[in-house]
C-alpha cells in the first residue's frame, strides 16, 4: 500500500532532489489564516506539509513553537478543528502529503481509534508523535500502521547503531532525523555531521531520511539537501509568522505572504542543492 508520502518521495527521487517539508501550527494565529497558509504552501514550494497539533506542554519544543501552540489554543484551536483544517485543505489538493505532528495526550483524550478513523477520513497521511518512543508502540504506532497511516519516527544523535533498528522498525513514510540534541529552534546543525548521520541511518533503512531542527535559511537548507532526502523547517517559519502579526497578535494583511516568501526561498535553496550521488 503506498501513501501520498511514499509517492511524493518517489517522485522527487526521480526528479533528483530533496523534499522541502514545512512545519506550521494548526490554528496559528487563527483557524482561517492557518488554513490559508496551508493552502498556499504547496505553490510556494512545500513538498510535504507538517501541521502541528497544539499542546499546552510541548516538552521538546523551543520558545517559538511553544508560543505558536499557545496562540492557536488561545484562538480556540482543538483536535476537531485541526482535522477540519486538513479536510478543507484536501478539497483543493489531493496530492500534497500532510503529516500531523504533536504530543500524545490530545490524541489519547480524543480516543485513539476515533482519531485514526477521523484523521484518515480527513486526508491525513502520517503522524509524528514526539513523546511516543518505540517502547510505547502499542499505544498508537501499531494501530496507526494497521489503519494505513504512516508513522514517522524521530531518530536523534543519541540513537546509536544498536538502538537504531528498534527505532526504524515500525517506522514508515520517512525517517525524521533530529539534527541536534536539543529542542526545536535551537542551535544550527553542522552540515558535515548531519551528512554523516544521514549516511549512518541509510545503512539501516531504505526509507527516505528528512532532517530537521535548527534549519533556518535557504543556504542551510541547500547544504542539507545535498545528502538528505528531505529538509524540515519549522521554527524559522513560525518566527516569520509571528513577526507579521499586529500588536494584538492578530494576523496582518501580510501574514500569509510573509510565510510563503520564506518558503519560496527555502524551496529555491533545496532545489539548488547539488545532490551527492547515491552510495
Amino acid at each position: 500500500m503506498t501513501t501520498r508520502i511514499d509517492r511524493r518521495f518517489a517522485a522527487l527521487k526521480a526528479e533528483g532532489r530533496a523534499a522541502l517539508v514545512t512545519f506550521t501550527m494548526a490554528g496559528d494565529p487563527d483557524y482561517d489564516t492557518a488554513l490559508a497558509i496551508a493552502k498556499a504552501l504547496p505553490k510556494a514550494g512545500a513538498d510535504v506539509i507538517e501541521l502541528g497539533m497544539p499542546f499546552t506542554d510541548p516538552m521538546a519544543d523551543g520558545p517559538a513553537i511553544q508560543a505558536a501552540g499557545l496562540r492557536a489554543l488561545a484562538a480556540g484551536q482543538n483536535m476537531i478543528k485541526t482535522l477540519k483544517l486538513v479536510r478543507e485543505f484536501r478539497v483543493s489538493d489531493n496530492d500534497t502529503p500532510i503529516v500531523l505532528m504533536g504530543y500524545y495526550n490530545p490524541i489519547y483524550i480524543y480516543g485513539v481509534e476515533k482519531f485514526l478513523t477521523d484523521a484518515i477520513a480527513a486526508g491525513v497521511d502520517g503522524l509524528i508523535v514526539v513523546d511516543l518512543p518505540p517502547e510505547e508502540d502499542e499505544e498508537l504506532c501499531l494501530p496507526a500502521l494497521k489503519a494505513g497511516l504512516n508513522f514517522i519516527r524521530l531518530a536523534t544523535p543519541t540513537t546509536d547503531d544498536k538502538r537504531l533498528p528498534a527505532v526504524l522498525n515500525n517506522t514508515s513514510g520517512f525517517v525524521y532525523y533530529v539534527s541536534i540534541t536539543g529542542i526545536t529552534g535551537a542551535a544550527a546543525p553542522d552540515a558535515t555531521k548531519v551528512s554523516a548521520a544521514v549516511d549512518r541511518i541509510k545503512r539501516h533503512t531504505k526509507l527516505p531520511v528528512a532532517v530537521g531542527f535548527g534549519v533556518r535559511s535557504a543556504e542551510q537548507a541547500r547544504a542539507i539537501a545535498e545528502n538528505a532526502d528531505g529538509v524540515v523547517v519549522g521554527s524559522a517559519i513560525v518566527d516569520v509568522l509571528r513577526g507579521s502579526l499586529d500588536k494584538s497578535g492578530k494576523a496582518g494583511s501580510g501574514t500569509v505572504k510573509a510565510v510563503t516568501d520564506l518558503v519560496s526561498a527555502l524551496a529555491e535553496g533545496v532545489k539548488s542543492a547539488r545532490r551527492v550521488p547515491a552510495k
Binding site: 514526539v130 518512543p133 517502547e135 510505547e136 544523535p157
Partner: peptide
C-alpha cells in the same frame, strides 16, 4: 519491566532522552 503500574506509568519521552 516496562514501568507500568496497571495502565499507569510508562516511558512517554522524546527519542533523544530514551537512551539516557
Amino acid at each position: 519491566e516496562r514501568g507500568h503500574f496497571g495502565i499507569y506509568g510508562g516511558r512517554f519521552v522524546a527519542e533523544t532522552l530514551m537512551p539516557n
